[in-house]
Design a binder for these strands. Structure first.
Lengths: 201, 201
DNA sequence: GCAAAAATGGACCTGCAAGTCCAAAAACCG
DNA sequence: CGGTTTTTGGACTTGCAGGTCCATTTTTGC
């Protein structure tokens, strides 16, 4: 009932979302007008409101979901295989590389700050992303505990929470300063403390 | 040349900034109209543009500076006296208490995300805040090193960077989830690892 | 007290960007 | 095929929020 998209329609919809996402990454949420999306994706206003009847809010929500999924996808296959210290370091490197390349263009910040208050669903998207992210890290910690590489005394969820916080803050500070120093420091020191725990405890 | 504010004028200007800041904390930057500020502060449009000739952007910049200063003030006198482990814990408690009370109403997020891209100076304000914040933490670390409570092997600036990242991420996740779990985890685990360093190294 | 400067109030203007509407073209399906 | 539904294009409307302007009142400094 809700949907009856032909193949062509599906493609157009996807093109709009991807184009809007790119535009938003480039210029920020509140700088992007529907006209920009139209120009950038070669679509008309009729199309925009055909695929997103609730207008900009609905489009932004779709973009948020798209970007949230992308964040986790960009960390694969490392994130789902934190089964050895080299694997952890590879994941670390991927993260830093990804955010260094991204620079100031952060989809999350804008989408949390701006969409977050508007649309009720946007909050849920961000929360869901963080939840999945943290769980993946916690799984990695638990696996390392099962092999004895991390002390069993460590609270995996709490450690994952701290690490995730460090990452988020590192990215935030990357936005502010343009440098990955904080992200690197947070990742390295937190991971190091997990390794150290294996020896002491 | 630039200014000639009477006592009354100064008071009005301050009232506008404080009122706008409160309004923004409450409802978010892009939900606040100049009219809201006028209503909330009992001022007229003429006054707004009298004290902020460049309009909303200039007002937002003043609000950003106001809020940035407040963030550090709220941590005093603890932040400037990280000279013993109890002092560190008192600081930790103050931070958590402050942000728990603040809840979802974060001035920084909005001001970085939205003002950040607009005004060129807003970026500088946030950068300056982070710089001062990190330096204060680093000073605390160095002091603890001077008393032997933290290992001399620790890179104070790097440790401060990691801790600051954890705080920022913790606050960000507080915005997303409404809970202080991440902030607490990041603070506690990072501080603990500094204490542990004293014993091992 | 008085001229100059600052502070205040509020009516008015303006531009822009979201959202509406409908008519034409293309795609789908039996 | 031919009727139906989806897709598309773009002109038009509308509301609103930022910004302008000036007339009036208050404060200042001598």
């Amino acid at each position: 009932m809700t949907r009856a998209l032909t193949r062509k329609g599906e493609a157009t919809r996807a093109r709009i979302v991807a184009g809007a996402a790119a535009e938003i990454r480039e210029r920020g949420v509140d700088e992007v007008r529907l006209e920009d999306v139209m120009a950038h994706t070669g679509t008309s206003k009729g199309q925009l409101f055909h695929y997103f009847p609730d207008g900009k809010d609905e489009l932004l929500l779709a973009v948020a979901q798209h970007e949230a999924d992308q964040v986790l996808l960009d960390q694969e296959p490392m994130l789902s295989n934190l089964t050895s210290w080299p694997a952890w370091l590879a994941w670390r490197d991927r993260l830093i590389e990804r955010y260094r390349a991204q620079g100031v263009k952060c989809p999350l910040n804008g989408l949390l700050g701006q969409t977050g208050r508007r649309a009720p669903g946007a909050q849920a998207i961000v929360t869901g992303l963080m939840w999945r992210w943290q769980n993946a890290i916690a799984d990695g910690v638990r696996h390392m505990q099962s092999t004895g590489d991390i002390s069993a005394d460590v609270d995996a969820d709490r450690a994952a929470a701290a690490l995730l916080a460090g990452i988020q803050g590192g990215v935030l500070l990357l936005l502010a300063t343009g440098k990955t120093d904080h992200l690197e420091a947070a990742l390295d020191l937190t991971i190091d403390s997990l390794r150290a725990g294996a020896r002491t405890a």
